[in-house]
Design a protein around this nucleic acid. Structure first.
Length: 785
DNA sequence: AGCACGCCGACT
DNA sequence: GTCGGCGTGCTC
């Protein structure tokens, strides 16, 4: 007998062992009995076990019921990586597998029941009841058959043991949205093509969507050509459409500085081994060209590449870029794919059909074998941190871990590196490669406009916009706040509208004519009457992008105004439509939130105006300055690419603030110097490691009591374990004291040693309980909100 | 997680 | 007497 070790998708810190009479390949899924039901597990280990070893074990092992896959769906080489993740983030191994693998991996397949040859014979002889003729040919869905035949599943399993019936597992097929293109079959002669109009047309365009061709000519004629074998169908994912609006660099030659940087990377790639590199390059310095060269090198070595990008839309851009330069198979992995697409991409990767994988954070778990390089683009982006799942991992950090385990270089790229990464580079832990020059553009002309806050667009900014529009250029205005107005007040009694679930002020959205909570989605859209004094004298305070858009339409009635935020781009169709508009070569003003600064290159934008540059600096988080700096610098970086020198205007009431000062001139090093000094003085990362315990409940008093108890418990652990250099801070209410109806308190743990933090947390999570409270933890939190 | 087992309160 | 509340503990 074989003893099979299996991980199950449960929040348990253990694996389970089962018996099997046959060897099962590690990495393969199987169905196992668990309690009084069954679960899908993944085989981690399978070895022959002696009879008496099984007998003398403290467990009575159950048997593996069914093996699902023929080939592993997780390469066994990845086991140690996933185990590392579980240990580091203190998350049950089974849950790590659950988040790493495509959804549906652990959902029980449907069963279909068939008659075997013996079964058919038995039916002929009359040894089986007549209902079984139903499953003679095509089989039947298991449960439906049970009902029809009025049999219990036990009775059927008995028949299965006798070999009369057979049960097959199948996963309900999921449709993958594709589009069919038509192209010429190879080896058609030129003269032949010339004779037929449709073929000539296809020949000119190489690939034409079937629908378009049928509309242009006739369905009948096109079908005839397909039938005769002159045209063939090719299927593409629907997403390919986006490519039409995105321009990616085509032919390029590296500048001498770029070549120098690339040679340093090449040296590393040739040598092999784990090697983290920070590629620090300002916007427009050609980071993607360096990626391309490095990827080319790795592919030449016969190895594979994983490219992480922070956002789903950027995967499309990256895919286009890579497709343009490499004629190789690329897989895309991100949470926006349907279950079917994701599963298919996963299978392609496992089977080794793919050389490059591009994806958002979850792609760090891509089942690639033979990795030669990991690239993390826009390394500083907070989206690399998973916030919602049980395992709050950071894909950028995990890229380094995986790189270490696979013994390969990891390139972290950014124009504004995270403080943590830059610190490591300065300390010599990562190699720092700098791309300072912008081969196509000069640094923009910059200006600070002191702005007390009541006028949305100052006259100097208006004048500058006028000038650019007159030159036929476009303008980008950045304001990191969506909606119309973030505050609504009753002027009679000064009542301020807040969210009943979160207590945070509601934002007025004019398009929807409703008050929205940006944290829980609460919506108030009845006619607005003050709930306190019944007054209707409401006033909207401050501004979001919607209000800026309205204001601009008043000031510039003739000009095209485009708004880019989560409300205007909530579907792929809207995104495409807006992108199409942006790429039209007419002067326009684009108003956008951070959504608009993420990586999109707007053509012909020569002026960037930042409204309320101080917005975001007051968020009570140790990363507020860093994040603000990233966003402001990136907004500023949108100005004047490739064409003439751009202009950047910051409107702010806080012009002396170091973040604003250095973001305006895109001076990362000066910002870093100030920020790192603050981090050191107040003991925040990268000088300490951080973990936060968050305690949530319906009644604040109970949450408070529980938090105090938790703190006492933590201090006891610190004392009992004799740990030094560990600070347990709090408890205190979270900055957002109430969210989605739950009151929230937190306790912060700081230490220079991650090991010590984990030691405490592990004991705490295993033993501490408080009725009525949800307790979760976040290691290396991005946010303390 | 999810479910069974178990020990105390308010009901036909 | 019992129905059911959710605290506790286990799952190969």
């Amino acid at each position: 007998m074989y003893l099979v070790e299996v991980v199950l998708p449960l929040p348990l810190h253990q694996t389970f062992s089962y018996l099997s009479d046959r060897f099962i390949l590690p990495g393969v899924r199987c169905i196992v009995p668990f309690r009084n039901s069954r679960l899908i597990g993944i085989v981690l280990n399978c070895e022959l076990a002696e009879e008496n070893l099984i007998k003398n074990s403290p467990f009575t092992y159950k048997e593996v019921e069914e093996v699902i896959d023929k080939e592993p769906i997780v390469p066994p080489k990845m086991f140690s990586f996933l185990e590392w993740v579980a240990n580091y983030y203190l998350c049950a191994l089974g849950l790590v597998y659950k988040i790493a693998l495509p959804s549906g991996t652990f959902s029980l397949p449907k069963k279909r029941i068939f008659l075997t040859y013996q079964g058919k014979e038995a039916l002929k002889k009359g040894d089986l009841p007549e209902v079984f003729s139903l499953i003679k040919t095509k089989g039947y869905e298991f449960k439906t058959f049970l009902r029809k035949a009025k049999l219990s599943s036990k009775e059927l399993l008995k028949l299965k043991k006798q070999g009369l019936i057979e049960i097959q597992y199948y996963f309900p097929e999921v449709k993958i949205p594709t589009e069919t293109f038509l192209r010429l079959k190879p080896n058609l002669s030129e003269e032949f093509i010339e004779k037929e109009e449709i073929l000539r047309y296809v020949n000119r365009l190489k690939e034409v969507p079937e629908k378009v061709l049928k509309n242009l000519f006739s369905s009948k004629e096109v079908n005839k050509l397909i039938k005769k074998g002159f045209l063939e169908r090719v299927e593409y994912l629907k997403m390919r459409k986006i490519s039409m609006f995105m321009s990616v660099p085509e032919d390029y030659r590296l500048t001498s500085l770029q070549r120098e940087v690339f040679f340093k990377i090449k040296e590393r790639l040739d040598k092999g081994g784990f090697y983290p590199i920070l590629l620090f390059g300002v916007t427009g310095s050609g980071k993607s060209l360096i990626y391309l060269e490095a990827i080319k090198e790795v592919l030449n070595q016969g190895k594979k590449v994983l490219v992480l990008v922070p956002e789903i839309v950027l995967t499309t851009y990256m895919e286009m870029l890579l497709l343009k330069h490499f004629k190789t198979d690329i897989a895309i992995l991100h949470s926006g794919l349907s279950a079917g697409e994701r599963f298919r991409e996963w299978q392609r990767i496992v089977k080794g059909e793919v050389k490059i994988v591009v994806g958002a954070r979850s792609a760090i778990f891509a089942p690639i074998e033979g990795l030669g390089l990991i690239v993390v683009d826009e390394e500083h982006d907070p989206s690399y941190k998973e916030e919602n799942l049980s395992c709050k991992y950071n894909a950028r950090d995990l890229a380094l871990v995986r790189g270490n385990l696979e013994n390969i270089p990891v390139i972290l790229g950014s124009a504004t590196p995270s403080i943590k990464t830059f610190y490591k580079a300065v300390e010599g832990k990562y190699e720092l490669l700098v791309l300072k020059e912008r081969p196509y553009t000069q640094l923009p002309e910059v200006r600070l406009i002191k702005h007390p806050g009541f006028k949305l667009i100052t006259s100097s900014l208006k004048k500058a916009i006028d000038e650019e529009l007159a030159k036929g250029k476009s303008v980008f205005l950045y304001l990191n706040r969506r909606g119309y107005a973030p505050l609504v007040r009753c002027e009679d009694c000064h009542h301020l509208w807040g969210c009943p679930n979160c207590g945070i002020p509601l934002t007025y959205h004019k398009e929807e004519d409703s008050l929205l909570c940006h944290y829980c989605g609460f919506e108030l859209n009845k006619t607005l009457v003050c709930p306190v004094c019944k007054g209707t004298n409401l006033k909207f305070y401050r501004a979001g992008t919607e209000r800026v858009e309205e204001e601009l339409r008043k000031i510039f009635p003739e000009v095209e105004i485009i708004r880019l935020d989560r409300d205007s781009i909530n579907t792929e169709r809207k995104f495409l439509k807006i992108m199409e508009k942006i790429y039209q070569p007419i002067p326009k003003i684009i108003v956008g939130t951070q959504m608009g600064v993420h990586g999109h290159n707007f053509p012909e934008v020569s002026l960037v105006g930042v409204l309320r540059a101080e917005e975001g600096l007051f968020i009570p988080s140790y990363k507020a300055a860093e994040r603000s700096f990233h966003l402001l610098t990136q907004a500023a970086g949108r100005a004047g690419r490739k064409t003439e020198r751009g202009k950047v205007f910051f409107q702010t009431s806080l012009e002396e603030h170091y973040v604003i000062k250095y973001a305006l001139t895109q001076d990362y090093e000066s910002f870093y110097k100030e920020e790192i000094a603050l981090r050191k003085a107040f003991l925040f990362p990268p000088f300490v490691r951080l973990a936060v315990i968050r305690i949530e409940g319906i009644k604040e008093e109970i949450v408070k009591q529980g938090s105090i108890k938790a703190k006492e418990f933590l201090e006891k652990i610190v004392e009992e374990e004799g740990l030094e250099g560990v600070w347990v801070i709090g408890p205190s209410p979270c900055p957002f004291r109430k969210l989605k109806g739950f009151y929230r308190w937190h306790i912060l743990i700081k230490s220079e040693s991650h090991k010590k933090i984990n030691q405490i947390l592990q004991i705490f999570l295993g033993r501490f309980m408080f009725k009525g409270l949800k307790i979760n933890h976040d290691i290396d939190p991005e946010d303390l909100l």
